[in-house]
């Protein structure tokens, strides 16, 4: 089967599932309307979801769960960090923009890495340089400016997991 067709079928069933979940009405007219909408979605935007052929690994599911748990934990930590800074009367900040090197190449992996960095304590991705594989990160409390050290501190938390999931 062609990759595009496969992607369209996956998108069709996912849209149908979302339709059923958000309406929660199990009557024939509702289901028919859902099928029509899902078909339109699959025809117009279906080819974008699956781009490369990859085998399904159970290991990847495990890594995804590990990533989600780690991400939630870091998000909660980030919020307490922001709360501490905002409540502190002296505003203990030392901001700056530093560079972080990354090994990831695929767009999806880079996007997830940038998003994860933005939602973890004290860091915000400003720009991604795909050619040099460098992320520019705004750090609210700069601890070091050396690229090796920042790569370990900021990117290292998620890079390995994302590499396993996406590459």
């Amino acid at each position: 089967m062609k990759l595009e067709t496969k992607s369209r079928i996956v998108v069709f069933f996912m849209s149908l599932l979302v339709w059923i979940l958000i309406t929660m009405v199990f009557s024939i007219p509702s289901l028919v309307a859902g099928i029509v909408v899902a078909l339109i979605t699959a025809i117009f935007a279906g080819e974008m979801l699956i781009i490369t052929e990859r085998k399904f690994h159970l290991k990847r599911v495990w890594y995804t769960i590990e990533y989600l748990l780690k991400f939630t934990w870091e998000l909660i930590k980030a919020n307490f960090h922001v709360a501490y800074i905002v409540i502190h009367p002296l505003l203990p900040i030392k901001p700056g923009i530093v560079k972080v090197r990354t090994k990831l190449k695929r767009d999806s992996a880079l996007t997830m890495l940038a998003n994860s960095i933005t939602l973890t304590p004290g860091t915000l991705t400003v720009d991604v340089d795909v050619d040099n594989q460098v992320l520019y990160v705004h750090w609210i409390d700069v601890k070091s400016t050396d690229i090796e050290q920042t790569t370990k501190d900021i990117g290292g938390r998620f890079e390995k997991l994302l590499e396993e999931i996406f590459e």
Partner: peptide
Amino acid sequence: RLPDVYNRLQAATKS
């Protein structure tokens, strides 16, 4: 409370 647009974005996005 935070001084510039980048620091404010940090607080705004996370919290």
